[in-house]
Amino acid sequence: MSKPTNLLLDQLSAADREALLATAIRVPLILGDDLIQPGQMIHAVHFPLSGIISTVNEMADGRSVEAFMVGREGVAGIEATVIPMRSASRQTIQVTGEALKVDAGRVRALADDRPGLRRMLALYHAGVQRELEQTAACHALHPAERRLAKWLLRCHDRSDSDVMQLTQEYMAAMLGSQRTTVNEAARMLQANGAVAYARGKVRVISRPALEASACECYRKVTALRSGGQSEAA
């Protein structure tokens, strides 16, 4: 198997990476598909090579909000690398790409015998927990425009293009906001020269302008993730 471009896998020693990927299969990530639904057992973990996987929490009234997203920097299904686990959320494909799929039981067995792999997974899991804590505060305290700018930056970090296929309805669902609220926030970002939006596509015009519009949570989460990677190195 060719060398992975997943940044988390690239932190492993060659021996640990080879053992982990010995039975991995390369699978497509198709926009709109679900990897897993709430209540289902997590039988496999996915290391994205490209594309974005979103973990989405859904309420009884049909509303939803994104808890976190995973691109080539991480792994989807991290909770099942410790013990067998059912998913509390929906994992859905936000941006088309590819991933390396590995049986969750095999990951657990390898982590028991390989301290380097176990430590890498633990550090990543801790980083996700920190991000969830920051996101909870962000949703409670920050206005829609700043949260949308942060979310678009996170998408842009994980995309291979300045153009992203994102409808206002989808962005509203991911942010847990009304579509009218997201529409107004998007207009403000366009007025600031940060993005252009048309026909369900967002184009990043000025990355610095988008960063200036984002709340502090984007920089905090980025710093937390960077810190975890340096610890794992």
Rank of each mutant, 00 (worst) to 15 (best):
L175H: 07
T135E: 14
A173K: 13
L189K: 00
Q165L: 09
G105N: 10
E169A: 14
A137M: 14
A172N: 03
E131H: 05
R119T: 09
A191L: 04
D162R: 07
T96Y: 02
R146Q: 07
N183C: 07
R187E: 08
I205A: 09
V107S: 05
M174K: 06
L153A: 02
R187G: 01
A185K: 09
R199M: 11
R118Y: 08
A198C: 01
E184C: 08
I93N: 04
E79G: 00
A88K: 09
D103C: 04
V204I: 15
A104T: 13
L141I: 08
R130Y: 09
M188T: 12
A136I: 08
P84E: 12
T135M: 14
V202E: 01
I93F: 07
T81K: 00
A80G: 06
L148Y: 00
M85L: 05
G71A: 08
V204S: 07
S177H: 05
M174T: 03
D103G: 02
Q178I: 00
A111Y: 00
G74L: 05
M164F: 10
D103N: 12
E98Q: 12
E73D: 14
A173E: 15
L166Y: 00
T135Q: 14
Q134R: 13
K101E: 11
M188Q: 15
T96S: 13
L100I: 03
L121T: 02
S161W: 06
I83E: 11
G71P: 02
I93M: 08
A99V: 13
H156C: 05
Q129T: 06
Y124G: 04
V82K: 10
S89D: 14
G193C: 06
G77E: 11
A111L: 01
M188L: 15
A76W: 03
G127K: 00
P143H: 07
A137W: 14
A88Q: 12
M171S: 08
V202S: 00
M188I: 13
S206Q: 10
L123R: 08
D103K: 08
R108K: 02
E73A: 10
K101S: 08
R154P: 01
D113R: 13
R203V: 01
R90N: 01
S89E: 15
A99K: 07
A172I: 03
D103Y: 04
A191M: 03
A196K: 14
V75I: 11
K101I: 04
R147P: 00
M188W: 09
R179V: 13
R119S: 04
M171K: 02
L166I: 11
